[in-house]
C-alpha cells in the first residue's frame, strides 16, 4: 500500500474531526471530534514511521504517547462536562455563554 493512501485516510479522518468540533453543539460529541483528530495524527505518524523505516520507531512511540495523553484529556474533559451538566442541565456549547461582551 502506498504512503499516499494512508496519508489521505489520515487527512480525511482529521477533516471529519474538525467538522465534528465545528458543527456539533454537544460537548461530548465535540470531544469525540477531537479524539478523531488525534487518531488521524496517529495514523499519519505510524504511516510515516513505516515509510521512513528507522530503527528507533519514533513515530510508533509517539503514537503511544498520544493515545495515553488523549485518555487523560478525555478524563478531565468528561469531568468538566459533567460539572457543567450538573449545574445547567445542558451540555450544548451554544447555551454555555454567560461570558460575553
Amino acid at each position: 500500500m502506498s504512503l499516499a493512501w494512508v496519508l489521505t485516510l489520515g487527512a480525511l479522518l482529521f477533516s471529519l474531526g474538525i467538522y465534528g468540533v465545528l458543527a456539533r453543539r454537544n460537548a461530548v460529541l465535540v470531544l469525540m471530534g477531537i479524539e478523531l483528530m488525534l487518531n488521524a495524527v496517529n495514523v499519519n505518524l505510524i504511516a510515516f514511521d513505516a515509510w521512513i523505516r528507522q530503527g528507533n520507531a519514533t513515530g510508533q512511540i509517539f503514537a503511544l504517547f498520544i493515545i495515553t495523553v488523549a485518555a487523560a484529556e478525555v478524563g478531565v474533559g468528561l469531568a468538566i462536562v459533567l460539572l457543567v451538566f450538573r449545574r445547567r442541565e445542558t451540555i450544548n456549547v451554544d447555551e454555555v455563554n454567560l461570558l460575553k461582551w
Binding site: L7, F14, I34, V41, L45, G59, V76
Partner: peptide, 23 residues
C-alpha cells in the same frame, strides 16, 4: 469547558503539524 475544548482542539492541530514535520 471553553479552555478544554479549544485547548484540546488546538493541540490536535499542533500534533498534525508535528506528524507532517516528522514525515
Amino acid at each position: 469547558l471553553k479552555y478544554l475544548l479549544l485547548g484540546a482542539f488546538s493541540t490536535a492541530i499542533f500534533l498534525y503539524g508535528i506528524a507532517l514535520s516528522f514525515g
